[in-house]
Nucleic acid binder design. Structure first.
Lengths: 207, 207
DNA sequence: TTCTTCGTGATACGAACGTACCACGTTCTT
DNA sequence: AAGAACGTGGTACGTTCGTATCACGAAGAA
C-alpha cells in the first residue's frame, strides 16, 4: 500500500478546509468539491476519510468547538497566572466576541450549526454542545467565588447573572457579525455589566 | 385574460407557504417545488409571481417581519390602554420569545436570514432590519420615560440596559429554540433584570 | 517474490434544483 | 367580432450535488 498516512491528521486538514470555505461562503453553500479544492486534495479523498457529507459536517463541528476551546484557554493563560475573578470572566467573555477572522468564522459557523440543529434531528443529537451549561456553570462559579471574597456584589444572583452575561455576549457577537454593532460598543456593554456586578475595588483595565 | 387576480394577495399566500415549509424543514432546505406544493399551486405559478427564488426569499423575509410587527402590536394592545412602562417593556420582550408555533417559526427563520446575510451580500443589502435600532430606540425611550416618572432606577444607563435586555431576550429565544432552556427559565431571567431596573413600586404580575 | 491491502485518482450516475419554454383558455379592449 | 394580454399548466433543459464505481500503484505481510 502507499505511504501509511495518519487518518486523524488528514481528517483535521480536511475539516480545516471545511471551516475555511464555510466561513467564506456560508455553511449552507459548501459542497464536498469545495472542501476538496480548499484542502488541495481530490474529491475522492474527502469521500475516503469521511464517507458521507453528514459525517464531514459532524466532524467539522467537533473540530470547530475544539479549536475554540483551545483558543479560549490560550486567552485565559495570557491573562497571567491567577488573575482575579473579574479578569477571568472578562477574558472568557471577550474571547467569545468575533473580533478577528478566526473568532468571526467560529461565531458564524457555530450559529449556523445551532440554527441547523433546530430542523435537523441528527445534528441535534450530536454532542453539539458539551459547553452549553459548562460555560454557564464555570461563569457562575467564578461569580460566586468573587462574592465570597467580597469582590462582587453579594446581592446579585450569580447564576442568573452568569446566564445574562453569556446571553448578552452571544447576541453582541451576532450583532458584530452582521455589521449592526461595533466591537467597541459591544465591549462597552459588557464592561457596564461587569462594573455593576463587581465591586469597584479593581477597575477594568482598558481593552 | 383569465380572472384578473390580486397579485399581492397571491404573493402573500405563497410567502405564507414559504414560511410554513421553511419553519418545518429549515430555510436552507426549502425549494420552489416545496413552496408550490405547500401553497397548493403549480411550480409555474410560484415562478410567475416571483420570477426568481431570490425574490421569493426577499419577499418572504419582508412578510415575516411584517407578521411579527403585527403580532407584537397586538400583544401591546392586549396589555390594555396606557399600561405602565414596565408592562409595555415586558410585553415587548416576552412577545419576542418563541413560546408558540408562530413565534418559534419567526425566531428560527429570522435567525436563519440573519446568518445567511453574513455571507450573502444581496440579502445583507435588503431592508433586512428597519428594526435593528428601532427596537433599541423604542426600549431606550421607555426606560427613560420610566426614569423621569421615578418608576425606574435613575442610576442606570437607559440605552445600555435597553441593548442588554434585547440581547438577553434574543439569546434566550435561541436557547429555547434549540431546547437548551425552558421558556419559564428564560422569562425568569428577564424578570430578574426588570426587577433590577424598575423600582419595586409595581411588582411583576405572574406570567 | 507474491499477494493482499491501503491510499488515491478519475469518472460516471441518478436525483434534485432553479429556470426556461411552449401551449392553451379566458377576458379585456377596440 | 377579432385580437391582444393575462393567468395557468405541463414539461424540458442544464447544472450541481452527493455518492458509487472502476482502476491502479505502492507498501506491508507471507
Amino acid at each position: 500500500m502507499p505511504k501509511r498516512v495518519d487518518h486523524e491528521e488528514r481528517r483535521t486538514q480536511i475539516a480545516e478546509a471545511l471551516i475555511q470555505v464555510a466561513g467564506r461562503r456560508g455553511l449552507h453553500a459548501v459542497g464536498m468539491r469545495d472542501v476538496a479544492a480548499e484542502a488541495g486534495v481530490s474529491l475522492r479523498l474527502v469521500q475516503y476519510y469521511f464517507e458521507t457529507k453528514e459525517k464531514l459536517l459532524f466532524y467539522g463541528l467537533k473540530h470547530l468547538t475544539d479549536r475554540f476551546t483551545t483558543r479560549v484557554s490560550a486567552r485565559l493563560a495570557a491573562a497571567g497566572p491567577d488573575p482575579g475573578p473579574r479578569a477571568t470572566v472578562e477574558a472568557l467573555l471577550l474571547a467569545s466576541l468575533p473580533t478577528d477572522d478566526e473568532s468571526r468564522t467560529f461565531h458564524l459557523l457555530y450559529s449556523s450549526y445551532a440554527i441547523l440543529s433546530v430542523t435537523d434531528k441528527a445534528l441535534a443529537a450530536q454532542p453539539f454542545i458539551d459547553n452549553p451549561d459548562a460555560a454557564e456553570n464555570a461563569l457562575t462559579g467564578l461569580l460566586q467565588q468573587a462574592q465570597e471574597t467580597a469582590l462582587a456584589d453579594p446581592a446579585v444572583d450569580a447564576r442568573t447573572e452568569a446566564i445574562s452575561l453569556l446571553a448578552t455576549t452571544a447576541t453582541m457577537g451576532t450583532s458584530i457579525l452582521v455589521g449592526q454593532r461595533t466591537s467597541e460598543s459591544a465591549i462597552a456593554v459588557i464592561h457596564h455589566h461587569l462594573n455593576r456586578i463587581f465591586t469597584n475595588n479593581h477597575t477594568t483595565p482598558p481593552t
